[in-house]
Design a protein around this nucleic acid. Sequence first.
DNA 1: CACAATTGTTAGACATGTCTAACAATTGCA
DNA 2: TGCAATTGTTAGACATGTCTAACAATTGTG
Lengths: 165, 165
Amino acid sequence: MVKQEAQKEQTASMEDYLEAIAKLGEEKKVVKVKQLSQMLGVKMPSVTSALKKLSEQELVVHERYGHIKLTPEGDELARDVICRHEALTRFFAQALGIDRETAEEDACKIEHLISPLSMERLTKFVEFMEACPLGGVNFPSRYEYYLEHGVLPQDCSGRRVRQRK
Amino acid sequence: MVKQEAQKEQTASMEDYLEAIAKLGEEKKVVKVKQLSQMLGVKMPSVTSALKKLSEQELVVHERYGHIKLTPEGDELARDVICRHEALTRFFAQALGIDRETAEEDACKIEHLISPLSMERLTKFVEFMEACPLGGVNFPSRYEYYLEHGVLPQDCSGRRVRQRK
DNA sequence: CACAATTGTTAGACATGTCTAACAATTGCA
DNA sequence: TGCAATTGTTAGACATGTCTAACAATTGTG
C-alpha cells in the first residue's frame, strides 16, 4: 500500500508553469524567470508571482534571484501534464492530420481540462490507429481520402449512408 | 457580399450562458434567471451580471425582472457553440466509446477552446467513422476489441508493432 | 386583494492571474 | 573592480467571474 499524497489540483495556469519548467529543465541546466516568461508569453512579474504560489505548495524550489527547480512532487505533476500534452498532440497531428502548430496549440489548451477517462481512451485510440494497418490500407489514408474528396474511398465497400439501424 | 459583423469573441463563461439560454429556449417558452442559474450551477447574481454584459453586447435581450431572449446575433453564436458541443460529444461517446455523462462534460469544457480547424476535422472524422463500414467489420468494433484485449484483432493482419519507418 | 413565498437585483467582497511602474540585485565587460 | 545593462522583485491596478447579504419586485393563493 503506497502512501499516496493527495495531489493538489492545479489550475490551467499553474500547470502551464510546471510544464514549462520541466521542459526548460530538460534542455538547459538552469531555469530562469526570463526564460519562463518568454516561453509562456507573460511578463516577468507574472512568473515571480506564480513561482511564489508553487513554492508555497512545495512543487517548486526558488530562492530569490536564484534558480528554479521542480521538487519530486512538482516533477511528477509536470510529467503528467507533458504526457497529456503529447498524447493530444499526436492525436491532432497524426490521427486528424492537423498541422503541428495548431495541434500543439489545441493540445496546450485541452491538456488542462480533459477527463482522465477521455485521456486514456484517446491515447489508446492513437496507439490503435498507429498499430492497425487494416490489411495494408490503413485508416489514416482512407480518412485522408475522405477529407479530400468528401466521399468514401472504394475499399469502404461502396455503401454511403446506410447507418441508422 | 454579405455584410459580416465581426463576431465578438466570447469567454468560455459567456459562451456557456448563451448556450444555456438557447437550450432552455427550445423547451420552455420563456427563459428565467432561476433556470439558468440551476442549469449552469451558479447563483442568481452571477446570472444577472452575465446577462448585463451580454445585453450590452446586444447578444441578449433582458429587461429587469423580465424574460430572457437571444438576439439573432446571440442566437447565431449560441448555435455555433451547440454545434461544437454536439460534435465533441459524438466524438467522445461514439468514437471513443466513453459514457454519455463524461462525454458531455468533456465536450462542455473543450467546446470553448478548440480551434476551428480541429473542430472541423473532428467532425469529419466522426462522420467518416460512422459512414465507413470497412467491409462489414467497422472501425469502432475493432477498436473496442483492442480496448478490451490490448492486442489487435485478427483482421488487423496480425502484425503487432512494425510501425516505425 | 393582500401578503407570504419566490424570484431577481444591487452592492460589494473575494479569488485568480495578468499587467505596469518603480526599485533592487546580479552580471558581465572595459 | 566598478558601473551599465540585464534580470528579478515588489507594490498595486485591473479584468473576469464568482459569491453572500440585503433589499426589491413579482407571483400566486387564501
